[in-house]
Amino acid sequence: MLLIKQKPDIKEADITDESLYRQRRRFLQAAAVAAAGLAAPGLLASPFAMAGEKLTGVNTGRYVLDEKPTPYKDVTGYNNFYEFSTNKQAVARLAEDFKTRPWKIAVEGEVAKPAIYEFDDLLKPHKLEERVYRLRCVEAWSMVVPWVGIPLADVIKRLQPTSRAKYVRFVTLHDPEQMPGQRPGLLGSGLDWPYVEGLRMDEAMNPLTLLGVGLYGEVMPKQNGAPVRLVVPWKYGFKSIKSIVKIQFLETQPKTTWNLAAQQEYGFYANVNPNVDHPRWSQKRERRIGEDSLFSPKRETLMFNGYAEQVAHLYAGMDLKKHY
């Protein structure tokens, strides 16, 4: 193996692991297909195929993080998706038969044309981008995920919200038949379903905010929130709601699921912030999944998960200890 250190400040030995190698191959393939597509747009395959299938016509987007992506097997094998299970390693198996087609998304509220869209009708007009983002869970672990998605701002502009729209509310599918975690158990089913999340309009319009439809160059795996999920990299993972069936434009701040479950622990903003601890554990450090060994210390958590340059202005003058 040839190992070239170009700069003395490269921290990790950049030994290409298999998934990274596969990802690069996929990227090259995607680039080739995209090039072919430019020549003959009509020949492009649908970029919205079934989970696991390769996505085509993906552009390398802005914001490609220069950090080693978390191995594919960990990104798709360690999932907080309580609709299926609170056991992160059981979600992939339990989501195997989850039906992500046909998929309808209702657009409601303060918007020019409220409507129920077929998945393809809502998202197909937009270009796909690959973005490599950090993902920081409120449980103090983190990943680096090569997402494929559409800037949420592009979709919102097309939907034309009215001037009264100050917030966007998102709702996950509620289907206990398919989602065992939503079935009432002996002690209830944990959270109030359906799962609801929200963003302030300027947060939703921020260029970092993505509607994710895939990762690692593939259609979004079911356990990662297929067919479409939010990706808000400067906020704790629970803000990035999965398997979205409703997008609502509102004048007032919506109530959100974890905030309702434990108000003093999970705020509406939930910005990654090493200076504001969760009441029950520290948020100063994090463990990088799939990369840190059993014996490596945790790494420092970055303000806004390292995206301060892009988002800090959204919160200028706000007391982030109060608006956690």
Binding site: K73, D74, Y78, K88, Q89, W141, R287, I289, L294
Partner: peptide, 8 residues
């Protein structure tokens, strides 16, 4: 084989 987050 301690999973994605061995310490956890």
């Amino acid at each position: 084989e301690l999973g994605a987050n061995p310490v956890e």
